[in-house]
Amino acid sequence: MSEPLIELRNLKKVYAVPGGEVVALDGVSLKILRGEIYGIIGMSGAGKSTLIRCINRLDQPTDGAILIDGENMLSMRGNDLVRMRRRVSMIFQQFNLLMQKTVARNVRYPLEIAGVPKHRANARVKELLQIVGLEDKVDAYPAQLSGGQRQRVAIARALASDPQVLLCDEATSALDPMTTQSILALLKDINERLGITVVLITHEMAVIRQICTRVAILDGGRIAEEGTVDDVFVHTRSAAGKRLFGILPENDADEQLKVPALRIVFDGGRENRPIIAELVRKCGVDVNILSANIRRIGGKPYGQMLIGMPEDAEVRDKIMKFLLGEGLTVKEVWPQ
C-alpha cells in the first residue's frame, strides 16, 4: 500500500498550434501508490485529460518520465508498449464501445487480441459481466443500453486483461448523478475487491470526495497541491483549490444572475450556526436565497450563497452589518 506503482517525473507536454505552442503539462511530478484511488481534479483546460492520456501513451509526452512498476513507459516501443497497455486499462467519458459488437464481444475483445482460447475467454466474459451486474445483457448491442450500462460494459472490458491500473478519463461526466453514484460505487468495489489501483480525473469534487484516497489539484498544467482528500479539502492552500471548492468567488453563479445580489462566502472559519435564520430574526428582513453551494467538510461550512439584494438601501446596510458582524465575507454582485 505504500510503494508507488506509478511515478510521473517532471512530465511535460507541449502542443504545436498554428502560430505557437500550448503548454498542456508544465512539469508534473506525482507518485501514485499501489492499491489507492488517486484523483486528479482541475478546471477544464487544466491539462488533466492530457495527463491521464500520457500515462498509457495515448498522448506522447514531450519530456519527463513515467514509471509503472519500475518500468519506463516512455522508452517502450512496439510489443513492449502493447504488453504494458494490457496491464494499464482505461475507461472513457464517451465509453468508446465497439458499436457493431455485442456486449459479450466487447468484453471479449481484450482477451481475443491477447490470444486467450475461446472457451476460456467466454467463461471470463461471464465472470466479468457478473462483476458489473450485466449478465442479462450479454447479447445486447451498446446502442440498446443506457449510458450507465455502457460504462459498466466498458469497465468489464477494461478488467478483462487483469490490469494493475484502471485509468478513468472523466468516466462519470456524461452520466446523471444517480448513475454516477452507482459507477463510483462499482469503481470502489473493484478497487477493494480486486486490488486494482485506480487513477481518475474529474472536474467534480463530489467524485473525489466520494471515492478517492488522495487527490492532486491540477491548474495550468502544474500540480497546485496534493495530499490526502481530507487534508486538501479542509486545509486548502492553493488559489486553484480554493477556486475549485467555491471558497473564493466562483464566476459561474454570477453569469446567470438577473438581479443585484449579495454574496456570502463561507470559508469554514467559524462553527456551524444557522446564520440565515438569525439574519431573518434579528434584522426582521425577508431573505431571498438565489443560489447556494455549501459543503460541510470536517463539520465546517465551505462555499457561497447568493441572496437577493433588497432595494431599500437601509435594509441592505442592516443585512451587511449583521453578516460582517458575524465575520463573514459579504460582497455586492451586479448582473453582468
Binding site: 498509457n56 497497455r85 472513457f92 464517451q94 464501445l97 487480441i113
Partner: peptide
C-alpha cells in the same frame, strides 16, 4: 474514441 480505446487495450 473507439480506436483509441482499442489502442489503450494493447491492440
Amino acid at each position: 474514441g473507439i480506436i483509441e480505446a482499442a489502442q489503450s487495450m494493447g491492440s
